[in-house]
Amino acid sequence: TGYYDVLGVKPDASDNELKKAYRKMALKFHPDKNPDGAEQFKQISQAYEVLSDEKKRQIYDQ
């Protein structure tokens, strides 16, 4: 599964769309709200870390 799929956004998503999707998913799977969501929360955080950084995103998109 790709990072875009993890966040539920298209590859041409804007920074604002990425942030909005990340916040929505992070709230849904945060371990405090969803004890079984810890692994998914890590994936969401990693996806956002890469896609929100312009240089990392360019490398990922290659």
Rank of each mutant, 00 (worst) to 15 (best):
K10C: 15
Y4R: 00
K28Y: 11
K56G: 06
E39G: 04
S52N: 04
S45R: 14
G37T: 12
V6D: 03
K56H: 04
L18N: 00
Q58D: 09
Q43C: 13
E17P: 00
K10G: 10
R23L: 15
A26M: 13
Y60A: 05
Y22M: 06
D61A: 04
T1K: 12
L18W: 01
V6N: 00
R57W: 04
L18P: 01
V6R: 05
Q58N: 09
E54A: 15
L27T: 12
D61P: 06
Q46E: 13
G37D: 09
L51C: 04
Q58R: 14
K28H: 06
Y22H: 03
K56C: 13
K56W: 05
E54K: 15
A21V: 03
S52L: 11
Y3S: 01
D15G: 11
K19F: 12
G2N: 15
A26L: 15
A13N: 02
F41A: 05
D61W: 04
N16H: 14
I59P: 02
L27I: 14
K42R: 13
A13S: 04
E49H: 10
K10N: 10
D61K: 02
Q58A: 13
Y22T: 02
I59C: 12
R23Q: 15
K42M: 08
G8H: 02
S45K: 15
K10E: 08
P31S: 08
Q58V: 11
A47V: 08
D32F: 06
E17M: 05
E54Y: 13
F41S: 02
A13Q: 00
Y3G: 00
G2V: 06
Y3D: 00
Q62F: 07
Q46W: 10
L27Y: 09
D5A: 12
G37R: 06
Q46N: 11
S52A: 11
K55F: 12
V50N: 05
K10S: 12
D61V: 01
Y60P: 04
K42P: 07
D32Q: 08
K20S: 12
A47S: 05
D32M: 10
K42C: 11
S14Q: 04
Q40K: 14
Y22G: 04
N16Y: 13
Y22P: 01
T1P: 11
Q62S: 11
L7R: 00
G8A: 04
Y22C: 09
L18Q: 01
D12G: 12
L27W: 10
A47T: 00
G8T: 01
D53S: 07
Y60M: 04
I59V: 12
D12V: 05
V50M: 05
G2R: 12
L27R: 13
S52I: 13
G2Q: 12
Y3C: 14
P31Y: 06
I59K: 12
A47I: 07
N34W: 08
Y4S: 01
V50T: 11
N34S: 08
D36G: 10
A13P: 01
K28F: 08
N16T: 13
Q58K: 14
K33F: 14
D5Y: 09
E17L: 03
S45A: 12
A38C: 10
S14G: 07
D15C: 15
D12R: 03
K55N: 09
L27N: 14
M25C: 13
A21Q: 04
A21K: 01
E39Q: 08
K33D: 08
R23E: 15
G37W: 12
L18R: 00
Q40S: 09
L7N: 01
K55Q: 09
K28I: 12
T1M: 14
K55Y: 13
F41K: 01
L27D: 15
T1W: 15
P35W: 03
A38I: 11
E54F: 14
D61G: 05
F41G: 00
K20R: 13
Y48C: 05
A47W: 06
K10D: 09
T1V: 14
D53E: 04
V50K: 04
I44K: 00
R23P: 07
Q40Y: 13
E49Y: 11
K20C: 14
P31T: 09
E39M: 07
V50P: 01
D15A: 15
A13W: 01
D15L: 15
P35A: 07
K56Y: 05
L27E: 15
D12A: 04
I44T: 01
K20W: 07
R23C: 15
V9L: 08
I59S: 10
Q62M: 12
V50W: 07
I59E: 14
F41E: 02
T1Q: 13
E39P: 05
Y22A: 02
K19L: 14
S14H: 03
R57E: 01
E49M: 07
D12L: 05
M25V: 05
I59M: 11
E39F: 07
N34M: 06
M25A: 10
V6W: 07
A38D: 08
F41N: 02
D36Q: 12
H30N: 10
P11R: 11
K10L: 10
S14V: 01
G37H: 15
P31M: 06
S52K: 08
M25H: 06
P35I: 06
D36C: 11
A38R: 09
G37Y: 15
K33N: 14
A38Q: 09
K24C: 14
E39L: 09
Y48K: 02
G37K: 06
R23N: 13
S14R: 05
G8Q: 06
E54C: 14
L18F: 00
K55R: 14
K19P: 00
A38S: 08
P31E: 06
N34A: 04
G8M: 07
Y3P: 05
L51H: 00
Y22K: 03
K28M: 12
K42I: 11
R23S: 10
A47C: 03
G8Y: 01
S45Q: 15
A38V: 09
Q62C: 12
V9A: 04
Q62H: 11
L7D: 00
L7W: 00
A26F: 14
A21L: 04
K20E: 15
D53Y: 03
I44Y: 03
Y48E: 02
Y4L: 01
K56P: 03
D32W: 07
R23M: 15
Q58F: 12
E49V: 05
G8E: 08
D36F: 10
E17T: 09
D61S: 05
V6P: 00
E17A: 06
Y4P: 02
D61N: 06
D15N: 14
R57I: 03
A47K: 01
E17Q: 08
A47Q: 00
Y4W: 03
T1A: 11
Y22D: 05
S52Y: 05
D12Q: 07
K24V: 06
D53V: 07
F41L: 05
I44C: 04
Y22S: 02
V6I: 15
G37I: 06
H30S: 11
L51K: 00
K24H: 09
V9H: 00
V50L: 05
T1D: 08
Q40G: 06
Y60Q: 06
A47Y: 01
Q46Y: 10
F29W: 08
K19Q: 13
F29P: 01
A13F: 08
I59N: 09
K56Q: 10
R57P: 03
V6F: 04
H30M: 07
L7I: 01
Q58M: 13
D36L: 11
I44D: 02
L27A: 15
A47G: 03
G37Q: 08
I59T: 11
F29K: 00
E49K: 11
E39T: 07
A38P: 03
D32K: 08
V50E: 05
Q40M: 15
P31V: 06
A13E: 00
E17I: 04
S14F: 02
Y3A: 03
G8V: 02
T1R: 13
K56R: 13
K19T: 10
K24F: 08
Q40C: 14
S45T: 13
K24D: 15
D15P: 15
D53W: 02
K42A: 12
D15R: 14
P11L: 06
V50F: 09
L51N: 02
K55D: 06
L27H: 10
S14E: 04
Y60C: 06
Q40W: 11
A47L: 02
D61Q: 05
K42E: 09
V6C: 09
I44G: 02
Y22I: 03
K19H: 09
K28S: 07
V50Q: 03
P31G: 07
N34T: 08
G37C: 14
D15F: 15
Q43V: 12
G2K: 12
I59H: 12
T1L: 15
Y48D: 02
Y3R: 01
K19E: 13
V6H: 03
L18G: 00
Y3V: 02
K10V: 04
K10Q: 08
S52C: 12
G37P: 01
K42W: 10
P31C: 09
N16M: 14
Q58S: 11
I44Q: 00
Q58G: 07
Y3F: 09
K55H: 13
D5I: 06
H30A: 11
N16F: 14
A13M: 00
A26W: 15
G2M: 11
